[in-house]
């Protein structure tokens, strides 16, 4: 992959949000988010179901209109047409063509990015579906099916990968496998934003965005999360932070200001 190695001199962040707010049909979904996503790292987006993770990801890939604030992606406003070839997006519900084979799906998304048949084979190989490449996507198991969707996001070799719950429904071996691949991609300079509600996966990220009810509770590293949440168990630590936030809300104190971590 052609971009800068991750350990080079400080580069501008891949994603920068400032006072970002999103409403869907008049309901506020994201409220005043400010954060940065560093280049060439894995940033985890964590929060309970309904906290706005998917909406934030949709705003980043440019399919959700933002209401207020700014959102800069790879140096341009989110949704700019020049960004479309540089971002890979995997939706939460696998969005691929069920009536096409695995390879036909990946080839089509590859063709949209100007990639060759060899690139498509490599992407199918990378998600471990070479054996079923000629099978109809709709006939695969749930875990295989979501990996077809992942391959379609990988085939364009994007600079920024936005993955909405990519490991849902996968067995532990496969999950570890995929996280290994995410780290390889990051080592090659790809920026990854990965959402999850499994806190165990938070430990595999370089940086974490904790979201709750459309607000950003904190941006920190897993080590900082353990420290602030007062527990070595990330799940418990996150709960600790949520409880502190609830207590603050009940006391009528303002939400915490944004914190930046590496």
């Amino acid at each position: 992959m052609p971009h800068m190695p991750a350990h080079a001199a400080p580069t501008p962040p891949s994603i920068e949000a400032d006072a970002l707010s999103v409403r869907i049909r008049r309901t506020p979904v994201l409220d005043g988010l400010g954060f940065t996503v560093p280049e060439g790292r894995i940033t985890g987006l964590l929060g309970p179901s309904g906290s706005g993770k998917s909406t934030l990801m949709r705003a980043i890939v440019g399919v959700q209109r933002i209401r207020r604030g700014s959102l800069t992606v790879l140096g341009r406003p989110a949704g700019a047409s020049a960004l479309r070839g540089r971002i890979g997006y995997m939706t939460q519900d696998p969005s691929v063509y069920r009536d096409l084979t695995v390879m036909d799906n990946v080839r089509y998304f590859g063709a949209l990015h100007g990639r060759s048949a060899a690139d498509s084979r490599a992407a199918v190989e990378a998600v471990g579906l070479s054996d079923v490449a000629r099978r109809r996507a709709g006939s695969l198991s749930g875990g295989q099916f979501s990996r077809v969707s992942l391959a379609c996001a990988l085939v364009g070799e994007p600079e920024l990968l936005v993955l909405d719950e990519p490991t849902v429904g996968l067995d532990p071996v496969l999950r570890a496998d995929l996280w290994g691949q995410f780290h390889d991609l990051a080592a090659q300079g790809t920026t990854l934003l990965v959402s999850s509600h499994v806190m165990e996966e938070a430990g595999r990220c370089d940086s974490l965005l904790l979201l709750r009810e459309g607000r950003l509770l904190a941006q920190l590293t897993p080590a900082q999360l353990r420290e602030r949440g007062g527990s070595d168990d990330l799940e418990a630590a996150f709960l600790g932070i949520i409880r502190a936030d609830l207590a603050r809300q009940e006391a009528g104190l303002p939400a915490p200001t944004k914190e930046h971590a590496a």
Partner: peptide
Amino acid sequence: TSGTLERLMTTPI
């Protein structure tokens, strides 16, 4: 409805 349209809209198409 399958989400493929939204996904396509994030690509150069």
